[in-house]
Structure formats: structure tokens, C-alpha cells
Design a protein around this nucleic acid. Structure first.
Length: 279
DNA sequence: ACGCCCACCTGGAGGC
DNA sequence: TGCCTCCAGGTGGGCG
């Protein structure tokens, strides 16, 4: 499910119900996520107050008042949803609600993840950046300092396709299959193009397209294909604006083009693009 | 070091 | 209805 816009949407949805509030109880209903839940997880979280929630790449960083950070990744199918005490009573826990945070004011945050590709771990806040999962991550695409020349620099010498390079979180973070396809379409760049040839004006176009597609999707609450919901239960709507993703056979949306959107498989993932508009 | 393939796991969709 | 195959917003380990 979640690429940067979906994770950012979840972060924003959780903020008003979590920040400055205490987690009074934590239920672990299944520990075997992609990485097993931490030892003594409940006792290390219970009684802690949330100071803030940050995002790095596709990770949520929930800052606790004892200097720990709760790191959450949603994998492919993870959700974080809010339930107030009354609705919680009416809506019993579901099969894939693996972790439940009970907040002091009676609200709950439920972590639901059918495929269990997600993870949660605890780290000292000052060590998160050095953690194995974080130390090789590339720059944030929405950082204003990350511009065309910076992207071009990170693509230098890369012999793989530009599509694969965008999915590689060492190049830059937060891009997944949807936004890689959509940004390449907006930039008019073929997903098959060799990554190192995306330089100069092409790199300028690509970073602009990436920023635009991510910001627009955040505005729409992300893309809901199957699993993604905002914490309050609202769906995302950016999928209604897809130009190419999952649209194989549809007419290319470029005015006057008329070609059909094609699907191909690159490094095991579907790519959608227009062979006429994207070079 | 780099790039590619696969596995991890569940569920939904479509074909027969 | 049921069973089978394919596919899915991610990632990291192992291989050549």
C-alpha cells in the first residue's frame, strides 16, 4: 500500500489524537511481523506520552517522552486507524489487528496488517539515523534542497533502468511503484531509460514531476487501491487521477497522443507507460 | 559493489 | 460454489 503520500497521510491523521497524549496500554495480538515485535514491547511503551510524529522515507517515527522512538513501517498492507471508546466497543478487533494502542482519553490506534510485511521497533531517538534500516536511505524528495542537479548526481553511473533506480530507496526515498510510474509519465521519460542518462534538463523535469505527484497525492489523502485508509477511516482519492498506473490498454491521457498505455515488467514489478510520450 | 530474483504472507479478482 | 492461478502501494538477503 503505502508510499510516501500514504505514510504522510497516516502521520497527519494520527497527530491530533496522539501528540501530548499518554499510551496507557498496548495489546500485542500477533508478534510475528516482518521483524518480530520488540522484547518487552508493551512495558516499554505503556505509560509513555507521545511528543510528536515524524516521517522518514516510508517510516513513521513516533517520539516518546523517554527518549525512545517507536519506528513503524506499514509494509504493503498496513493501516493505522483510530477508534473512539464507543465505536471500539461496537467494532470488535479484526483478524489482522496485530497491535492496539490504548490512549489515555479512551481512543485507540489499531495497527492492522494482513500481509505482515510491516514492522515496529523501538530505538533511542538519537540513534535512529544510524540504524541499519536508515543509514543507507537517500534524500527526501520533498526537501527543497533536493533539486535536479542533486537527483542527477545520485543517478550518475547507475546502469539500471530509471524506474528501478527510483524504486531503490538509496537513490531517494518514498517512491514506490505507483509514483515512479506517474512521475515518469509526467516527466516524459521512458521507464526503460538507463538511469545514468537522466541528467541536466531531464533530471530537472523528473524531480519536478516527483514533487508534484507526491504533493498532489498528499492533498488527496493518498491512493486507495485496496488497503490504504486514513486513520479516521476516510479513503484516499489520488487513484482517480492516475494517468498510467494500472491503466494498461487505456488511451494515453496526453491530448492528441492516442496510443494505448502499455504494461511491462521490470525487476518483477509492473510498469505502466506510454511508448510515444515517454522517451 | 552492483544489479537482479526471490521470498516473505494474505486476500481479491478472474477463469473454468 | 469451489478451486486454481495470478497479482498486489515493500524490502532485504542471497546470488552471480
Amino acid at each position: 500500500m503505502p508510499e510516501l503520500p500514504e505514510v504522510e497521510t497516516v502521520r497527519r491523521g494520527l497527530l491530533p489524537r496522539l501528540v501530548d497524549r499518554k499510551i496507557v496500554r498496548l495489546q500485542q495480538r500477533r508478534r510475528d511481523l516482518r521483524v518480530p515485535l520488540p522484547q518487552r514491547f508493551a512495558s516499554r511503551v505503556e505509560g509513555r506520552t507521545v511528543l510528536g510524529i515524524d516521517r522518514r522515507a516510508k517510516y513513521l517515527l513516533i517520539r516518546l517522552d523517554d527518549g525512545q522512538t517507536l519506528i513503524v513501517h506499514l509494509g504493503m498492507s498496513g493501516r493505522m486507524t483510530l477508534h473512539d471508546a464507543r465505536s471500539a466497543a461496537q467494532h470488535p478487533l479484526e483478524r489482522h489487528d496485530h497491535v492496539v494502542f490504548e490512549i489515555e482519553d479512551g481512543w485507540q490506534v489499531r495497527f492492522n496488517d494482513a500481509r505482515r510485511f510491516g514492522l515496529m521497533l523501538l530505538a533511542r531517538s538519537e540513534t535512529v539515523a544510524d540504524h541499519k534500516l536508515f543509514k543507507d536511505l537517500g534524500p527526501e524528495p520533498l526537501d527543497p534542497a533536493f533539486d535536479g542537479p542533486a537527483l542527477a548526481g545520485r543517478l550518475e553511473g547507475r546502469r539500471t533502468s530509471i524506474k528501478a533506480a527510483l524504486l531503490d530507496q538509496r537513490t531517494l526515498v518514498g517512491i514506490g511503484n505507483i509514483y515512479a510510474c506517474e512521475a515518469l509519465f509526467l516527466a516524459g521519460i521512458s521507464p526503460r531509460r538507463s538511469a545514468h542518462t537522466v541528467q541536466g534538463e531531464r533530471a530537472d523535469r523528473l524531480i519536478a514531476a516527483l514533487k508534484q505527484v507526491l504533493l498532489r497525492s498528499i492533498d488527496d489523502g493518498g491512493s486507495t487501491l485496496r488497503d490504504h485508509v486514513q486513520p479516521g477511516g476516510e479513503l484516499g482519492y489520488f487513484q482517480t487521477r492516475f494517468n498510467v498506473y494500472d491503466r494498461a490498454g487505456a488511451v494515453c491521457p496526453t491530448r492528441g497522443c492516442g496510443h494505448a498505455v502499455k504494461r511491462l515488467v521490470q525487476s518483477g514489478r509492473s510498469t505502466f507507460y506510454c511508448t510515444r510520450c515517454q522517451r
